[in-house]
Amino acid sequence: MHSDTRAPLGLKLSAIGGLIFLLAPIALIFVYAFTTEEKSFQWPPPGLTTKWIGVTLGRADVWEALGLSLKVAAISTTLALIMGTLTAAAVARSRFFGRETISLLVILPIALPGIITGISLRSAFSLLDIPFSTWTIVLGHATFCIVIVYNNAVARFRRTSGALIDAAMDLGADGVQTFTLVILPNIATALLAGGMLAFALSFDEVIVTTFTAGNQTTLPIWMLEELVRPRQRPVTNVVAMAVVIVTVLPILAAYYLTRDGEHTAGSDK
């Protein structure tokens, strides 16, 4: 509207202030990954070194936590892709009694505070005598991963015209062929985006994990524990840097993947 007029100085300053407020702490984490002081965080850092990267790579507990986090994120994302897509297909394609309620119930876990999800899962596990394991963590993460995939998929399903499915069937494609040749290519980017977002969320999840993990340690939990112990502190910062990179990249990719495709597939005009 007023793209040619320039923003007033006050607005510019507050925008810059806001950005500093948001990003400075993250920058600090990056800086402290290279500090020579290992017991406490001193500003300015007394010296800079890259030795902590080597130290981190040599720590077995880091690798173990990273391995568990990747495993949990991968399994919950896969689970979410299957269940989220199926739920989305049911909700977007057909009308049935209670459809809106189901839609709401699926989304609820993400609206619910993580601590509630965590407590309820923990009490459910102990009621059913389920021992804590990788799978209980996966179950906890799947609750919100499904929502992410579902939200992405349901939007794409609604934008993909039902006539495309009719057309495929009409041209002789059975259910499986219709799914692989027509439905999947049309929702693929939405699923990829949803999957990456779910992966990133699961990878840095803390709250639900603390309730469902037993004595296993995912990477974020490991970091939390590590901060309390004043030993080789910059190792935590190196890990934090890695986590930032691992989670930001998929989220950015997800954003770019869902940005295009504004128009409804199949109902041109």
């Binding site: 015209s161 006539a163 495309l164 009719d166 057309a167 009409d170 597939a265 199949g266 109902s267 041109d268």
Partner: peptide, 17 residues
């Protein structure tokens, strides 16, 4: 539909995008 020897030209064409 996929076992019938009839084919449809859809209202908005429904071409695969």
């Amino acid at each position: 539909p996929y076992l019938r020897n009839v084919n449809t030209v859809f209202q908005n064409y429904a071409l695969f995008p």
